[in-house]
Nucleic acid binder design. Structure first.
Lengths: 163, 163
DNA sequence: GAAATAAGTCAACATGGCTGACATAAAATC
DNA sequence: GATTTTATGTCAGCCATGTTGACTTATTTC
């Protein structure tokens, strides 16, 4: 591998720390998605399907609008993968009771099974990393990750006391 | 937003912790890439170009093979974005001295400027998160992130003593 | 009754992955 | 020295997943 450029930068260590932060996110995300991607490919689905199945499992009876605001994609993009998942009976839709325009989304048993098998690899990876790192490191990890995430979404991760 | 499913799981907290870990990675990566993506769109480039410019900046004189092993994509995929970057003079190629089959890649001045402007937003995001979290949390963050990254790539992140 | 909202649809396009087949130059090996 | 391997590049086509724009339907809100 080529050498890392150092250069006469007085803030070298700091620059280097930030670069490492950027890269850790890149490598972690790359490795984190590799296993589910391989499983999905075998059944003709993609990462986008995983994201939908994941968040419908996470928030049963979520509406389409809520899902769109989490995924931050257009409804046309969502529509494609969501239709696949409904057709193949991973996800069921039913009208909202208060607002009948809504289509509340839930996983079917088949969907629950899919979600579990996909996310198990990811859960195992996190669990192993948490176990190896210890509770204090995990708290540090959470704190930094929250700082990276846009403020609007931080409320999704309540501190331990509130969990 | 729909309620979070709890259920009668004796390991509830742990399950929930793992789910939060999964989601923090999703949200962090989503928000982390949003700003550079917007800048790239304005000049007709994409996220793939950013990755190449980033790693060529990180490892000046990197070879194509080394870059492929980092990005974990095919050479055909890399070729497309790399050709764009060479044509538009963000990246320069020169033959290796020991092995003249190699094309060593370096950023031009224009490439350095592009890389800087793209990564600045990301560096600022990391810097702010690190500052807010404090040194101990940053060490925890690093430890957990390394645990998530495949073992083969952990050597890219030497501990502070060795930096 | 009119306007806004939730959801969906159709069409066209861009990006960035992929496979397969093949080409060239240089290095390494027998 | 001939053969094989390696580093790189190229052409062609496919697929997944994002985009914009235009338009529809049902329902709720004003």
């Amino acid at each position: 591998m080529a050498d890392i450029k150092s250069g006469p930068n007085p803030l070298f260590l700091r620059e280097e720390d930030l670069r490492q932060g950027i890269e850790m996110l890149f490598y972690a995300y790359r490795d984190f998605t590799a296993e589910p991607d391989a499983m999905l490919a075998r059944i003709g689905l993609g990462r986008a399907h995983h994201r939908v199945v994941y968040f419908v499992g996470r928030y049963p009876s979520i509406t389409v609008t809520e899902l769109l605001s989490i995924l931050q994609i257009t409804k046309q993009s969502l529509s494609r993968v969501l239709s696949d998942l409904v057709e193949q009976e991973y996800i069921a839709q039913r009208p909202g009771t208060k607002d009948r325009r809504q289509r509340l989304l839930t996983l079917t048993d088949k969907g629950i099974e899919l979600e579990r098998s996909l996310s198990d690899a990811q859960r195992a990876r996190i669990a192993q990393a948490y176990r190896a790192a210890g509770a204090a490191a995990v708290e540090g990890f959470r704190t930094v990750m929250l700082g990276i995430i846009d403020a609007e979404d931080r409320a999704k991760f309540p501190p331990p006391g509130k969990r």
